[in-house]
Design a protein around this nucleic acid. Structure first.
Length: 825
RNA sequence: GCCGAAGUGGUGGAACUGGUAGACGCGCUGGACUCAAAAUCCAGUGGAGCUCAAACUCCGUGUGGGUUCGACUCCCACCUUCGGCACCA
């Protein structure tokens, strides 16, 4: 590697320098503007992959740039350290999860340091350590005392491979988000967090998040799934009970021809008890539930149903309609009961086709349009009401208001809102998680562990075996305890918490990581929060990012934080792909950070990753592209080293600057402007390309001029600022070059360069000349030239004369300093 | 089915508010240096036409229309790819 810079010794030396000086340690400094930049903390799986490298490279550029701009920058790192892989490793290799996790953390932390990241390691958090999960438990109790944590028996998602339940957000296409095993339904008694209480605020406050990508907000919006509509109460013929339905189309209430209940609806069996239908309906319900549980998500089941022999009475017209039960109605949404309007709902339409239930048209597309005999498909679009008694002729939107008023007046219904969002199921039947701080006592019932007894320690001595459910229930000395209330014998909760709880508040802990009295102190959290820039993968759009927003809102209500939202700006980075596919072991297209560090060093890895594509897009890994980044850094290295002697002797700038001097200086200041603006917009790729152009410009300057003609003072300015501009991207190399240029201290503690507007001024500009919008000529003119003067000059040009000869000039468009367009006929 | 994102040279990508399409990098071609190679440096590089050459002309940002003096950019319709949701009443 003759002629290449010695990245190995340079990178190791500066990493040591930073560590020795604790250069990136940050403290609360009230008189300095703060900036909190955060990358999503990793699960300690064992080693970093390129996605991590991309994530941390982006964050590190922002942190270093903001530091140079004078901000007090908080840039922490930690470990999302509870979770299944550790437990699986224990089962397969007999290593204790704590040991496995600690070893992985050590390795990954070493790799992050190799990358040259500017983390304040004094604030490192590790969610599986008692000094962290103690506060996770404390927060659970806070939720519990605020009525936001509750236990209930419910049908839940069960992953047979992970042997645990999952939250709705963790079921992807009917499969477990971690292992992709098909999820089953189980009826279990589980702990939930009442996130649905916050549905409306989680939705509404998306408006506050101007710094979030629109697609992420839309995904959350869809996930929360707010629908406005009405609840309508139907009586049942010859019975006391009533059925409440939720509908968004109460304007179609006169078109109801049947009623459908979900198989799990409590009224289903009540209605048939003691009748000839009891057995058939019972069978149907059992089969329907089974069939649905076994089905894949997204698979359309062919709407099976059975008549219950009972009739509901439509409260607006007194009509009696048959009550059915069908698997296309979900118990979990709305009221678990649906009014059937086949003419205006495609599902109801399909169902009635199958069972021969009549339809009634109550909406027509145009006012006073004839009502068709029959529809071939449901008409769900906008229109005007017909066959709807006093509401005939009203447009849909008005009819909804009028009918809602009517329902409320008559006490037969009310306006209502329904959400798709469900409460967050947080119990996990696993060992490697934070124990839920709850005790069950035969005398006192469910008793929260008192705050001063926290943490409820996760016992270390546990046997983990394949297929074992609730490993904690096997640990006698953990399970058996005394009731905090009455002192009598009691049992501990043996489920642990979803790891997403741990990651829902870690960004708060960083602000005050060592605090032993509280999860975080008020002063610290209010100084640092919210996170100014959060960076991570889009896969967390409705998981971590929604949960964290929920946590922040609850803590806001509890008076523990002052911000309504945790993350002001969000950058969702794209995936790293190679040869058209995501890097994966099975595809055999993995490039490890290790091999790149070894061959080219961290600066090259960072530069390539940031240069190859804008951060939110996919990154196509190219070995040749890496070579290119490597070549560029060497080009910078040679440029500085070749000029050290020259510029060290430099005095003041020469009096009469040459044309080349002015040009180079202008390019420098244009580059400072562009790089600054590009970093602000996260266009790192174009920021780097501008630095490359500047370096090319310096080479060209020196190529063109004899040594004696060059301006050493100018070269000094240009080279120093080039090094400063490159510093956030290639932190090690620029430290070394800064030292070579004769400076003490760290380049990262210098001020970010500011461009000189005077240097940008040009005397002449090149004007593009178009005829009828087509480029025909270019003209160099003085900057201040008047429109008239320019016009005369343009029309006088030989080419333009030839093109306009004998034609009528309709008009001439001027774009000052840029373009003249002559429109001819 | 619904919602969203993206389609630009051989290639990754640039063009920020409608104003020189293809910056920068990769690759390729030619040259310099070298006994030779590596490394490095210099020059060229969207396509077609016409040229000794330069100049010039035409075509060109997924497709088809439109708006405009001027469209990768705005509008309408469509195609393809990728992502999210999915019987949500």
């Amino acid at each position: 590697m003759e002629g290449h810079y010695d990245f190995k010794s340079i990178e190791a030396r500066w990493q040591e320098y930073w560590e020795d000086r604790k250069q990136y340690k940050v403290t609360l400094t009230a008189d300095k503007p703060k900036y909190y930049v955060l990358e999503m903390f990793p699960y300690p799986s064992g080693a970093l992959h390129m996605g991590h490298i991309r994530n941390y490279s982006i964050g590190d550029v922002v942190a270093r740039y903001k530091t140079m701009q004078g901000y007090n920058v908080l840039h922490p790192m930690g470990w999302d350290a509870f979770g299944m892989p550790a437990e699986n490793a224990a089962i397969q290799h007999g290593i204790h999860p704590a040991k496995w996790t600690a070893a992985n953390i050590a390795n990954m932390r070493r790799q992050q340091q190799q990358l040259g990241t500017s983390y304040d390691w004094d604030r490192e958090v590790t969610t599986c350590l008692p000094d962290y999960y103690r506060w996770t438990q404390w927060l659970f109790l806070l939720f519990y005392h605020r009525g936001l944590a509750y236990r209930r028996k419910a049908p839940v998602n069960w992953c047979p491979s992970c042997q645990t339940v999952l939250a709705n957000e963790q079921v992807i296409n009917g499969s477990c988000w971690r292992c992709e095993t098909q999820v089953e339904k189980k009826e279990l008694e589980q702990w939930f967090l009442r996130i649905t209480d916050y549905a409306d605020r989680l939705l509404k406050d998306l408006e506050l998040l101007e710094g979030w990508p629109e697609p992420v907000k839309i995904m959350q919006e869809n996930w929360i799934g707010r629908s406005e509509g009405a609840e309508v109460v139907f009586s049942i013929k010859d019975r006391e009970e009533k059925i409440t339905v939720f509908t968004t189309r109460h304007d179609t209430l006169f078109g109801v021809t049947f009623m459908v209940l979900a198989p799990e609806h409590p009224l289903v069996m009540d209605l048939v008890r003691g009748t000839e239908r009891e057995e058939a309906v019972g069978d149907f319900v059992k089969k329907a539930i089974k069939r649905r549980d076994a089905s894949k998500d997204g698979e359309e089941l062919g709407k099976e149903g059975i008549f219950l022999g009972a009739y509901a009475i439509n409260p607006v017209n007194g009509e009696e309609v048959p009550i059915w039960v069908s698997d296309y109605v979900l118990m979990e949404y709305g009221t678990g009961a649906v009014m059937g309007v086949p003419a205006h709902d495609s599902r109801d339409f399909a169902f009635t086709k199958k069972y021969g239930i009549p339809q009634r048209i109550v909406i027509v597309p145009e006012k006073d349009a004839p009502v068709p005999e029959e529809l071939t498909e449901a008409y769900a679009a906008d229109g005007y009401l017909v066959n709807s008694g006093p509401f005939d002729g009203l447009p849909v939107a008005e009819a909804q208001e009028a009918i809602a008023d009517y329902l409320e007046e008559k006490g037969i219904g009310r306006r209502a809102v329904s959400y798709k969002l469900r409460d967050w199921l947080i119990s996990r039947q696993r060992y490697w998680g934070a124990p839920i701080p709850i005790v069950y006592c035969d005398q006192c019932g469910t008793v929260p562990v008192p705050e001063e007894e926290l943490p409820v320690m996760l016992p270390e001595d546990v046997v983990l075996k394949e297929g074992a459910v609730q490993p904690l229930s096997q640990v006698g000395e953990f399970v058996h305890t005394s009731c905090p209330k009455c002192g009598g014998p009691a049992r501990r909760e043996t489920d642990t918490m979803d790891t997403f709880i741990c990651s829902s508040w870690y960004y708060l802990r960083y602000t005050d990581a060592g605090n032993e009295e509280a999860p975080f102190g008020k002063e610290a959290v209010n100084y640092w929060m919210p996170v100014d820039q959060y960076i991570g993968g889009i896969e967390h759009a409705v998981l971590h990012l929604l949960y964290s927003r929920f946590f922040t809102k609850v803590l806001y209500d509890a008076g523990l934080v002052q911000c309504l939202e945790p993350f002001t700006n969000l950058l969702t980075q794209g995936m790293v792909i190679k040869d058209g596919a995501k890097m994966s072991k099975s595809k055999g297209n993995v490039v490890t950070p290790e091999e790149i560090f070894e061959k080219y060093g961290a600066d090259t890895a960072r530069l390539f990753i940031l240069f190859a594509s804008p951060p939110e897009r996919e990154l196509d890994w190219s070995d040749q592209g890496v070579e290119g980044a490597w070549r560029f850094l060497n080009r910078v290295w040679r440029l500085v080293n070749n000029n050290v002697d020259l510029i060290k002797a430099a005095g003041e700038a020469k009096e009469s600057a040459s044309e080349e001097d002015t040009g180079l200086r202008r390019q420098l200041h244009e580059t400072i402007k562009k790089v600054t603006e590009d970093i602000e917009r996260f266009n790192f790729n174009t920021a780097i390309s501008a630095i490359m152009e500047l370096v090319n410009g310096i080479y060209r300057y020196q190529d063109k001029l004899e040594l004696a003609e060059q301006n050493p003072a100018l070269l000094r300015e240009v080279l120093e600022k080039t090094v400063l501009l490159l510093a956030p991207f290639a932190p090690h190399l620029t430290e070394e070059l800064w030292r070579i240029l004769g400076h003490d201290g760290s380049v990262h503690q210098q001020d970010w360069p500011v461009y000189d507007p005077a240097a940008l001024v040009r005397e002449e500009v090149k004007i593009v000349i178009q005829v009828n919008g087509k480029l025909r000529e270019r003209l160099q003119v003085p900057v201040g030239i008047s429109q008239e003067e320019l016009e005369t000059r343009v029309l006088d040009l030989e080419r333009i004369r030839a093109l306009t000869e004998g034609k009528e000039i309709v008009k001439i468009i001027h774009v000052p300093g840029k373009l003249v367009n002559i429109v001819v006929k």
